[in-house]
Design a protein around this nucleic acid. Sequence first.
DNA 1: AGCATAGGCAAGTATTCACTTGCCTATCAA
DNA 2: TTGATAGGCAAGTGAATACTTGCCTATGCT
Lengths: 102, 102
Amino acid sequence: MVVADDIFKALADPTRRTILDELAEKSGQTLFEICSRLSMKHRLGISRQAVSQHLAVLEAAGLVGTRREGRYKFHDLNTAPLRQIAERWLVSDTSRPEESTP
Amino acid sequence: MVVADDIFKALADPTRRTILDELAEKSGQTLFEICSRLSMKHRLGISRQAVSQHLAVLEAAGLVGTRREGRYKFHDLNTAPLRQIAERWLVSDTSRPEESTP
DNA sequence: AGCATAGGCAAGTATTCACTTGCCTATCAA
DNA sequence: TTGATAGGCAAGTGAATACTTGCCTATGCT
């Protein structure tokens, strides 16, 4: 089962957050597509296996969903887990900025 | 300067998240008060120094503010940094649950 | 002054974790 | 069937980090 700890741990790494950024920009990317984007756009010298392991962590946290088609495996961002985590401390907070004070 | 990396790294540890929970429940706690709460309520066998180091990480991330009064140092939760981080991937997301579709 | 309380500093340890290296499987095209 | 592409598995390495231990400073009470 996916718990909050998996989500926070997954978000702790900057490379994984960049991967989420890329998937937010373009969903359904393959491992190799993500690799080349990290290399080209973000100048990240990182091996394919490293990216694969990052994707496994993100998938275990429920932040990324995958679907197989032939020899391709497509990755999609799943923002559902993100909605809960920040609200954990925001709900009981009274110093929140007002929407519009009439 | 406090960057997103500091915030995510700070949130990655379960003990630090518990500390934030405690500060959300009762603000202005001292180091010793937090220590005893972690020990009593959460059964966390952890040293005072460990808690002190966790508080330093949270303070560096801007998630906790402190104020000195005599020999006491009070700690307060600051939720401001939390508002930005989750929205990083939520803003460009169209699968968000609708408020009310007219 | 003397002692207890609240907290800080710094070095050492042990675990976690990101990344690499090497090899293996599966799908598709020629 | 051979080769190329897309991906997976697993052991090993090095760095980051959570935690401890020991000692030190500052404030307040009696």
